Simulated scan of single mutants.
Amino acid sequence: MRIAIAYDCLFPWTKGGGERLYRQFAEEFVAAGHEVTYLTRLQWDEEPVIEGITVKAVSNDRDIYDANGVRTLGPALRYAAGLAKHFLANRGRYDAVLVAAQPSTNVLAVRAALLGTKTVIDVDWLEVWRPDQWRDYSGPVIGTVASVLQWIGAKLSPLASCHSRLHARRLERVGFRGRVIVSPGLIEPRGEVEPQLTVTSPPRVVYVGRHIPDKRVETLPAAIAAAREQIPDLTATIFGEGPSKPAVLAEIDRLGLRDVVSTPGFVSQEELDEGIRTAAVLVNPSQREGYGLVVVESCAVGTPVVVVEAEDNSAVELIEPGVNGYVAKSPADMGAAIVNAVTGGETMRKSTHDWYIRVSSTNTVAASARQILDRLVKAAHLR
């Protein structure tokens, strides 16, 4: 089949879980023998060359976030307009389209442009937000509009896929009228990465990700200070950058942890992998995760994970308490969870890696891609 994937970001020109997911979906579709066009926005200086995949920019915005890490409206609207223009000019070219539902303007653009064609459309929902969540994120006016557009997008989704039970339930509540396909998982087996099943000394906490309000990175220094009351030689490395970093540094200084906590920013993939592999525990205090890929990557090398229970955090679905990590009830409880993970020692590192071996044989990106692809093929044959 001729398949288009519509998402305004493309890995590695932009980095994140969604970017990696849709890039991998494209590669899996090509590996299955299909022709893939990836419709995105301009993110590069030199035209990208990806084997088997045609990459086309339908909008030109280089930046889609404001200074606080919030998506802005203009780039979303221009990307949606670019999608509509492309599909209007290519009606009949594609047998199927996989369109990311974030932002929901993508769904409206694709549906309107392909109305009346035989093209099969699957809307992929990485996340489904509550109305108050949209208002907190984008303000009362734009947030309300975004919430309404999400509701319309759900109503207009012919087929829908999600990657967590949390967001599948929400999609059904906001108005999707069909059967939501929940993928088996988004694990990318990493056989080339050697697990670290022995304990390194001194023990070290790591955080990996952007420094934005939803990630609550600024709560980490207090958790580390609390854990050090029982593990005095505990250190930490907080990777990443973002608008919340000044608050993180201020907390480190307030608690006198400048010699304990390092903040190297963004680093090479090799340094990041080694940092996770040799850590005693990875801590992710985020209140919002659509899936939680970093949890899986950490477990792949035997490093247990601490996450925090939150209404919008799907990553808790990946944790089996006492097996591959712990779920803290709140940021204030992270210190105790860190202590439990670290003192679990080699026993917990082995059970963490065993968890990964067990789930990585079935809950993979490849399996999810095949599930979506099978659905698209079947629907296309019925047209």
Rank of each mutant, 00 (worst) to 15 (best):
E27C: 07
N60Y: 05
G256T: 03
A315Q: 05
L115C: 13
V145H: 12
L293E: 03
R135Q: 10
Q102C: 07
T278L: 02
D132S: 11
T235L: 08
S262Q: 13
R349I: 02
E309I: 01
Q371N: 11
N313M: 07
G265A: 11
G69Q: 10
N340C: 02
Y356I: 02
A328F: 12
Q287W: 12
R358K: 15
A109M: 15
L257M: 04
E309W: 13
L39I: 10
N284P: 04
L376S: 09
V296Y: 04
T278Y: 00
T278C: 00
A227Q: 00
W125C: 04
E192P: 02
I3C: 03
R349L: 04
L126E: 12
E271T: 05
Q102M: 15
P321V: 13
L376V: 11
F239R: 03
S164D: 05
S161D: 10
V260A: 06
V217A: 08
A337T: 02
A109Y: 13
L293S: 08
N68F: 05
G325A: 12
G18Y: 03
A380S: 14
V70M: 12
R204T: 14
H86V: 09
S298G: 07
G143P: 08
L42P: 01
E274L: 10
Q43T: 06
P131R: 03
I53L: 01
G302M: 02
E46W: 08
E297P: 06
D333H: 09
V58D: 02
T347K: 15
R258A: 07
R177F: 12
V307G: 01
A341Y: 07
Q196T: 08
V261L: 02
G178H: 13
A113R: 08
Q196P: 00
L156C: 12
P203L: 10
G275M: 02
R135I: 06
L88E: 14
A26H: 04
R135E: 11
F87L: 06
D95L: 08
D253V: 15
R216N: 01
V365M: 04
